[in-house]
């Protein structure tokens, strides 16, 4: 009898104590996290935007202002607000007079170590790729990540030919990656010795993306040139 009554009186108090402690700690922790989040959010967004701007100005040299575009279901280009959550695919860069300097296009594919996300510059006048910047990569450090660092490799993308056929729908030549030193045509990429798979991945990503985007950009050229 005695033990029973003891259990009756102690158990609720223990549970109550546990509940109080956990709820109390939980509330304090939630407040701490919320405060940190509020405090750091503007800075984080700033830094991210800055990083994006930097990446775009790498692939579109001379860019001063930019506009963001997305592609809708009917393959139309639509200008989107920066705060918009829809995936941004295209950035148009303009110089101080509002002249179109080039386009920066986001593209991704599978590299050696996982997803490889890049931003490449496209010049609708020359119909050529003018450079690329790696946004996200899991390539082997010191080997696969030469795609970002090797100046010889980046030289390939100064003016990589992706010109369209007369029908404005298909590309004249598919971008191909060749063995190091074997580049003969402006649409070929010299691979990196020791990073064959990573350099091929870049080629494939560009080939896939330009096949879709180059005709699209061409169709909406007048739309893009307006600033």
């Amino acid at each position: 009898m005695q033990t029973m009554s003891q259990a009756d009186t102690t158990e609720p108090t223990i549970s109550l104590k546990m509940l109080k402690a956990m709820v109390g700690i939980g509330i304090v922790c939630a407040c701490l996290i919320a405060l940190t989040f509020e405090y750091t959010l503007p800075r984080i967004e700033n830094l991210k935007a800055e990083a994006l701007n930097k990446a775009i100005s790498i692939v579109i040299p001379g860019m001063v202002t930019k506009k963001t575009f997305g592609v809708d279901r009917n393959n139309n280009l639509l200008e989107v607000n920066n705060k918009d959550k829809s995936p941004h695919l295209l950035y148009a860069g303009y110089d101080e007079n509002g002249k179109l300097m080039g386009l920066a296009v986001e593209a991704s594919g599978i590299g050696f170590g996982g997803v490889l996300r890049i931003l490449y510059g496209y010049d609708p006048e020359k119909q050529a790729i003018t450079g690329f910047h790696v946004l996200e990569s899991k390539e082997t450090p010191g080997l696969g990540d030469k795609i970002e660092k090797s100046s010889d490799f980046l030289e390939n993308f100064r003016a990589l030919d992706v010109s369209l056929n007369e029908d404005n729908v298909t590309l004249k030549h598919k971008i191909t990656v060749v063995k190091n030193g074997a580049k003969k045509n402006p649409w070929e990429i010299d691979g990196i010795t020791g990073a064959t798979i990573s350099s091929r991945a870049i080629g494939n990503i560009l080939a896939d993306s330009t096949r879709q985007m180059a005709p699209l950009i061409n169709r909406h050229k007048s739309n893009l040139e307006k600033n």
Binding site: I33, T36, T40, R43, I44, L47, K48, A51
Partner: peptide
């Protein structure tokens, strides 16, 4: 764990605010 997770989340935000790279 609750306490630790809180500070980890804070550290996560702090590092993001310091450098995206």
């Amino acid at each position: 764990i609750l306490i630790i997770a809180t500070f980890v989340t804070m550290a996560d935000y702090a590092i993001q605010a310091m450098s995206v790279e």
